[in-house]
Structure formats: structure tokens, C-alpha cells
Simulated scan of single mutants.
Amino acid sequence: MAHLLLFHHVQGLTTGVRAFADRIRAGGHSVTTPDLFGGRTFASIEEGMEYGDAHQDKAVDMAKAAAAVLAPGFAAGGISYGVVPAQTLAQQHEGVRAAVLVDGGLKTEWFGGPWPAGVALQIHVCADDPWAERPMPDELAAEAAGELNLYPGSAHLSVDASLPSYDETITAEVVERTIAFLDRLG
């Protein structure tokens, strides 16, 4: 059983993010979902971005604090905005063994250098998602020798059942592939 430290998207720790985490748990893995926004949720990506941009450093500090109490060997995961703290940990925290990035993936130099050897990577993005900032996720997957999973369409936050952008077909594939990835970690 692997442990996934999963960071929410910019609309907050919604019931849909919790439900996504529950599906990973049902696959036999433990999942922690820290609330980086102190209970705040936002009706739109734009509203969430205004808050998230103003609190990015605090969110990363909270992510580091959440990681500090975990045993080494966990996976860091993030959905969209949550990719930043997840990728920060993957590249800078010795205890991270893998990263699962949903709806994004950024340049490694933004986090202090190349992707670390021995840290596995799995990315999930919709092929035409305007928020995913492609080709960055593609380039990250190539640099890290990671797994890039592209899904049809332009949906963003498609794994959050509480949002209009939710797509059950995509979510089922993301969950299945994430569980298989975590299974390989042991």
C-alpha cells in the first residue's frame, strides 16, 4: 500500500476532491488531503486564482509541513493548482518517491533544477485543456521519463464530481491508472 499526499485545485478542498481521494482509498491506498485554503472554496477558477495567487507561498509551506510528518516513500499528488505544492515536494523533499499530477505539470527549473533521479512521475491532462499549459506537462514527462496520460477534450478539473467540468469517463481512467501506478510503488 502506498500513501498519496494529494493537494486540491484552486477552487479548494471540495466534496469532489474528497470523493476522488476516496476512490483512490477504495483501490487500497491511503490518501491525505490537506486543506491549503483553510476551508474556503470558490465558485469559479478565476475567484480561486485570485485567492490562490495571493497565498501561494503559504500553500507551499503548508504542503511542506504536511510532508514533514509522513514516513519517507510517499507520493505527492496535485490537481491543477495543487500541482505546484506536489511538484515542489517531488523535486525538493527527500521523502517523495513519486508524483501524480492531474491537470498540469510545470518546468523543473521553476522548482530548483532537474527532475530527481528515482522519483517516478505520472501526469494526467486533457489534450486541449487551456489551463494545463501544454506542452509543459509533455516536456516534464519526457524529462522525467514519466508517464503522460492524455484524455480527449478540453476539460479542466474533470476529476472533481462537484463541478460542472466533471467527466466520469476521464475520472474512472485517472483513478484506475493512478491506483495501478501506486500499486507499482508498493
Rank of each mutant, 00 (worst) to 15 (best):
A2P: 14
L5S: 03
L5F: 12
L5D: 03
G12L: 11
L13W: 01
T15S: 13
T15E: 15
G16Y: 11
G16L: 11
R18W: 04
A19H: 15
F20W: 09
A21M: 03
A21K: 03
R23V: 01
R23I: 02
R25P: 08
G27S: 10
G27R: 07
H29F: 05
H29Y: 03
H29K: 11
V31E: 09
T32P: 04
T33H: 02
P34R: 08
D35K: 06
F37I: 06
G39R: 05
R40K: 14
T41G: 00
T41S: 09
A43F: 05
I45R: 10
E46A: 14
E47P: 02
G48C: 03
G48Q: 07
G48Y: 03
G48A: 05
E50N: 11
E50D: 09
Y51C: 01
Y51N: 08
A54I: 02
H55E: 10
K58M: 08
K58F: 05
V60Y: 01
A63T: 08
K64R: 14
A65C: 05
A66C: 08
A66D: 04
A68G: 04
L70E: 14
A71M: 10
A76M: 06
G78T: 08
V83H: 02
V84Y: 02
V84E: 04
A86E: 08
A90P: 02
Q92I: 13
H93L: 01
E94K: 11
V96R: 09
V96M: 07
R97V: 00
R97E: 12
R97T: 04
A99R: 10
V100K: 03
V100H: 01
V102K: 03
V102F: 05
D103M: 01
G105A: 01
L106G: 02
L106Q: 14
L106D: 13
E109F: 13
W110P: 00
W110E: 06
W110G: 05
F111M: 05
F111Y: 15
G112L: 08
P114G: 15
P116C: 12
A117D: 15
G118L: 08
G118S: 07
A120P: 01
L121N: 08
I123S: 01
V125S: 11
C126D: 12
A127M: 09
D128T: 14
P130K: 12
P130W: 11
W131V: 13
A132H: 04
R134K: 13
R134V: 07
R134S: 14
P135L: 11
M136Q: 12
M136F: 07
D138E: 14
D138L: 06
L140A: 03
A141S: 12
A142I: 00
A144K: 09
N149Y: 04
N149K: 15
L150D: 04
S158H: 13
V159E: 07
A161Q: 13
A161Y: 10
A161L: 02
S162D: 14
L163I: 07
L163P: 06
L163E: 03
L163N: 07
P164Y: 06
P164R: 11
P164D: 06
S165H: 00
S165D: 10
S165P: 00
D167V: 11
E168M: 05
I170G: 00
A172M: 02
V175Q: 10
V175C: 09
E176T: 14
R177A: 13
R177M: 01
T178C: 06
I179R: 04
I179A: 13
I179K: 07
F181H: 10
F181G: 10
F181Q: 12
D183F: 02
R184M: 08
R184F: 00
R184G: 13
R184N: 09
L185K: 02
G186F: 08
